[in-house]
Amino acid sequence: MNETTPLGAEDARSFAGWFKALADPTRIQLLHLLACADRPMSVGEVVERAAVGQSTVSHHLKILAEARFVLADRQGTSTFYEVNRNCLTVFPDAVRAILNQKGTGGEC
């Protein structure tokens, strides 16, 4: 039987924020779009490739950036977004922590 290690309140809040940020199909699609592009994209480029409008894209990218799933780089009047691969790589550790399994550790 595994010894239970309590999940700290700070980790629980972080993990909940991550899951909440991913709890929308449009955000998952935007992450996939950015991951496939494998380069920073402007909001305009994302809008051209997504089936949603500019304000919706901006709203969802803001949420993803707050959760650090995407990185935003402001260049003049444009903001370029790219997937934060480091963050997505450690995301499975949140699931392992919830299941009380050992993970590789890391921070998003």
Score class of each variant (00 low, 15 high):
residue 31 L to Q: 00
residue 59 H to V: 06
residue 102 K to Y: 02
residue 108 C to L: 00
residue 61 L to C: 07
residue 107 E to G: 11
residue 67 A to S: 10
residue 88 L to W: 09
residue 89 T to F: 09
residue 75 Q to W: 06
residue 74 R to F: 02
residue 65 A to E: 15
residue 34 L to Q: 00
residue 43 V to N: 10
residue 50 A to G: 01
residue 92 P to Q: 10
residue 31 L to Y: 01
residue 63 I to V: 14
residue 83 V to L: 15
residue 74 R to Q: 14
residue 92 P to A: 11
residue 74 R to C: 03
residue 30 L to Q: 02
residue 56 T to G: 05
residue 48 E to F: 00
residue 53 G to A: 02
residue 41 M to V: 09
residue 50 A to M: 13
residue 34 L to Y: 04
residue 101 Q to W: 02
residue 99 L to Y: 02
residue 32 H to P: 01
residue 79 T to V: 08
residue 65 A to M: 11
residue 69 F to E: 03
residue 47 V to A: 03
residue 54 Q to S: 11
residue 88 L to C: 08
residue 98 I to V: 15
residue 42 S to G: 04
residue 85 R to L: 11
residue 39 R to M: 04
residue 97 A to Y: 08
residue 38 D to G: 08
residue 77 T to Q: 13
residue 107 E to D: 13
residue 42 S to Q: 04
residue 54 Q to Y: 10
residue 108 C to E: 01
residue 43 V to T: 13
residue 55 S to A: 12
residue 41 M to T: 08
residue 42 S to N: 00
residue 46 V to E: 03
residue 82 E to W: 01
residue 49 R to S: 13
residue 106 G to E: 11
residue 50 A to C: 10
residue 87 C to M: 09
residue 45 E to L: 09
residue 51 A to L: 02
residue 34 L to V: 03
residue 30 L to P: 00
residue 77 T to I: 11
residue 70 V to S: 01
residue 59 H to A: 09
residue 105 G to A: 08
residue 95 V to D: 05
residue 86 N to S: 12
residue 32 H to N: 14
residue 96 R to N: 07
residue 53 G to C: 01
residue 54 Q to A: 09
residue 40 P to K: 06
residue 61 L to A: 06
residue 98 I to Q: 03
residue 97 A to K: 15
residue 73 D to H: 07
residue 31 L to K: 03
residue 30 L to W: 00
residue 57 V to Y: 01
residue 85 R to Q: 11
residue 67 A to P: 05
residue 53 G to Q: 06
residue 95 V to F: 15
residue 58 S to C: 02
residue 41 M to D: 08
residue 53 G to E: 05
residue 98 I to E: 06
residue 100 N to D: 14
residue 101 Q to H: 09
residue 77 T to R: 13
residue 33 L to E: 15
residue 46 V to M: 12
residue 81 Y to G: 07
residue 84 N to A: 09
residue 59 H to G: 00
residue 32 H to I: 09
residue 55 S to M: 11
residue 52 V to L: 10
residue 51 A to E: 11
residue 33 L to N: 09
residue 87 C to R: 12
residue 68 R to C: 12
residue 73 D to E: 15
residue 44 G to H: 07
residue 51 A to R: 12
residue 68 R to E: 13
residue 86 N to L: 11
residue 104 T to H: 08
residue 76 G to N: 06
residue 96 R to E: 05
residue 65 A to R: 12
residue 48 E to I: 04
residue 107 E to P: 04
residue 63 I to Y: 01
residue 89 T to E: 13
residue 98 I to H: 03
residue 107 E to W: 13
residue 72 A to V: 08
residue 68 R to Y: 13
residue 104 T to Y: 05
residue 43 V to W: 02
residue 57 V to L: 00
residue 52 V to I: 10
residue 37 A to K: 10
residue 95 V to G: 06
residue 74 R to E: 13
residue 56 T to K: 14
residue 30 L to M: 08
